[in-house]
Amino acid sequence: MVSYDEDNILLNAMYIKKYFPVKGSNKPGSEKKYVKAVDDVNFAVYKGETLGLVGESGCGKSTLIRTITRLIEPTEGALFYKNEDILNISSSSLRKLRKDMQVVFQDPFASLHPKMKIYQILEEPLIINKIGTKEERKKMVEDMIEKVGLKKEHLNRYPFEFSGGQRQRIVIARALITKPSFVILDEPVSALDVSIRSQVLNLLEELQQSMNLTYLFISHDLSVVEHICSRIMVMYLGHIVEMGTREQIFEHPMHPYTKALLSAIPRVNQKDRQERIILNGEIPSPVDPPTGCVFKTRCPYRTSKCDTVPENYDVDGHFVKCHLCEEGV
């Protein structure tokens, strides 16, 4: 099993912030405004685990992963990957880092170059990272395509000739061909038909076993997260509001937002059904988030304390950002 020791940390994100300036707000006379897409996010990823990141659309999930892969620069914070400060490294070390940290994007229809054959698509990461000779690369590509359950004959075709599930297999093959140790899966199954999802999820689990991978799995589908993740973070409006193991989150959710999310999972068995908590209102604009607790505008348990920022309460390794936990509820 995965060990959650300090020295088994693969990626450590500390106080990550990403603010985007709002267009037109830097005119003289007007106050400079920012979209606070990611605000003070702390988390660690342990080697060999699958860490889930859930949250509704627009809560900052994608910004967070773009920040930790350095596709965009964070406004503030520190990032350590294998104990190396990756925010202050040379561009050549960044290239090496990218070989070790790969991303599988959400939409398999948009993430493959339409004019490249599958062989070229899979060879690209190897060429970019200067791995192997031409013959070695050919062998690696052929091995990889079979690992993801496609055939060698498919290598000579174009992406448009494949279905969504097959394309996502190709995207996964491209991410894994450089033999990374950390793979970020940005909603890898949400664009796929339900019938294909489980196949792709099983493939991901198999590959994790055989290639010793660590996953950061982003999703808004809680049933998928429950199936695949060992630890889960819940994100709301740029903040991580709750983080814990799968059991902690699914059996004993503590943050009112997590409770509301869980009550929205469709259940087949009558006895598993919980009372549905319906949240009022919309997610507030990240340009002008509520002061104090970000969830207070929609929280059914709101008290006067909620006007101050809640701390991260640690209940047996289960982190919750809510004043209710202060009283031990």
Partner: peptide, 8 residues
């Protein structure tokens, strides 16, 4: 974006 994340 995928190409950029590969290090291109």
């Amino acid at each position: 974006e995928a190409a950029r994340s590969m290090g291109a």
